[in-house]
């Protein structure tokens, strides 16, 4: 009886050693779901190896180098942040792990950790997801100065400071010559030296020098992958304006403002608005009444 039992136990042990899927040991890198597979990237492979070797500090450096690379795809970013979160937890840096998982979730709100992920990671991940659901994650903040008036025929550069930029989000500068129907746009690019500093440039050919001055309407917008506005200054209906000066040597003429920017028009609109408001107030304060039938009763 005991011989048979020993034989059964031995066969289970051998089978588990031969088959990784049946092994009792948890793999360090559980295979992700098929739809979450990211394309291979040297930094990812190298970081995985460094994590396997227990060289976590080097792994963090490798991952940060991977995140700084200019040609990283969204899938690769997700994988880089996932590994960065994992490595940071191994190093006991929960704050950085949290930051990494937040970035991951901002890019892929539906991302799920593999079921085989360590419980500590799963707990932290669940907490972060809950925070995001309850909107406790810091919003994107955009600080940008208005574009000053410029010379024609020269590029115009806008600098912005964007904090807590969501992964997968785009910061763009929209612009159009005043009176034109559609906006063009240029992307803000991240400054290599300062991760919160972004620069966008309107090319010179979009701002030709002309005999008379003209205005350019513009606005800034940070939007997520679903084109939801996360932050901005101005918008398509309430744009900011800068002016392109007339070509040197030409007789200065008054800027060609579109009809709707005429001050007289807005004086008239203001007068109408004041009159309308006054009318509304008069109407609201007029003694409009309603008849209320009342039955009075007296106790006998």
């Amino acid at each position: 009886m005991s011989v048979r039992r020993n034989r059964v136990v031995a066969s289970i042990v051998v089978a588990s050693l031969l088959s990784p899927g049946a092994s009792l040991a948890r793999p360090l890198f559980p295979s992700p779901l098929l739809f979450q597979v990211a394309p291979a990237r040297p930094e990812i492979a190298r970081a995985q190896q460094q994590i396997s070797d227990g060289d976590f500090e080097e792994a963090v450096k490798t991952l940060e180098a991977g995140l700084d690379a200019p040609d990283v795809t969204d899938d690769q970013l997700v994988e880089l942040y996932r590994l960065l979160g994992l490595t940071s937890l191994y190093l006991g840096d929960e704050a950085r792990a949290r930051e990494a998982y937040e970035m991951l979730l901002q890019a892929r709100p539906d991302y799920e950790l593999p079921r085989t992920a360590p419980p500590k990671i799963r707990t932290l991940y669940a907490r972060i997801k809950e925070d995001i659901k309850n909107r406790r994650v810091r919003p994107v903040t955009l600080q940008v100065d208005p574009i000053p008036d410029a010379e024609g025929g020269t590029p115009v550069m806008a600098e912005a400071t964007i904090q807590d930029m969501a992964l997968g989000a785009r910061a763009r500068l929209f612009y159009r010559r005043a009176g034109a129907q559609a906006y063009s746009s240029v992307d803000f690019t991240r400054d290599r030296a300062n991760k919160e500093r972004f620069i966008a440039t309107i090319p010179a050919y979009e701002l030709p020098a002309t005999a008379s001055a003209y205005e350019v309407e513009y606005y800034f917008e940070v939007a997520d992958a679903a084109q939801r506005r996360l932050a901005g200054r101005g918008d398509a209906f309430n744009p900011l304006v800068f002016q392109i000066a007339p070509e040197p040597g030409t007789v200065a003429t008054s800027s060609e403002r579109p009809w709707y920017k005429s001050p007289w028009l807005w004086v008239a609109v203001g007068a109408v608005a004041v009159a309308g408001t006054a009318g509304a107030v008069v109407y609201a304060t007029s003694e409009e009444r309603g008849r209320v039938p009342i039955t009075i009763r007296v106790n006998p």
Partner: peptide, 25 residues
């Protein structure tokens, strides 16, 4: 002009909400 202990009347009250109607004998 009570009839069977009750009297009906009507008043025009400014349109609005949250009033108290006090009837004094």
């Amino acid at each position: 002009g009570l009839r069977s202990g009750a009297q009906e009347l009507a008043v025009d009250v400014p349109v609005g909400r949250d009033y108290v109607v006090v009837i004094e004998a």
